[in-house]
Amino acid sequence: MSDTTPHLTMQQSAPSATGLDSAKLGMWLFLATEVMLFSAMIAGFLDMRGRSPADAHHVLNIPVTAVNTFVLICSSLTVALSVAAIEQGDQKRLRNFLLLTLLFGGTFLSVQIYEYNVLIGSGELTPWNSLFGAGFFAVTGLHGFHVFIGLIWCVLTIIWTSQGKFSAQNFMRVEIFGLYWHFVDVVWIILFVLIYLV
């Protein structure tokens, strides 16, 4: 990696009364709504977990999901590196790291879908035959849907990058995509523990 010291970002934002950038402020407000949405789902999940048999989660495959969690963390890294790349105006490295993010994100989602087929196919855990199953599929399904939206957003960002829309002075939209992706990763970090390990 090229440099180690923190460097200056010369990104220009529209002047605003609070000095904050409107797009980033809007994104953080959106993340607050996502915090509330996943908190409500987690509260529901904990309520259901308490009412279903204690060892209901032993049917879940922890090793594969642990690797899957690692894959999602890698995708978070590549997004961070892509933002670092565009800060210095390196559009090529930005595009490469975004492609890597797409790869890792796609892998994560397909492993999740594969896990779903195994669980529902074998009938061990389905949304309709057990309360734990209902909560599990609701929460992880909602998270998977958010990953899917993130993948679409990643493809769009790649297209905008190849159209040369971003530079060292103007990469707020990459940073906003990064915020969304990292948030989805944070949600998985919490879900991985709450559902699989606890």
């Binding site: 607050a32 409500a40 529901g44």
Partner: peptide, 13 residues
């Protein structure tokens, strides 16, 4: 901002 997502989760269920 803070309330509506909780309703959205309940409606999803």
């Amino acid at each position: 901002l803070l309330g509506t997502p909780v309703l959205s989760g309940a409606l999803l269920m």
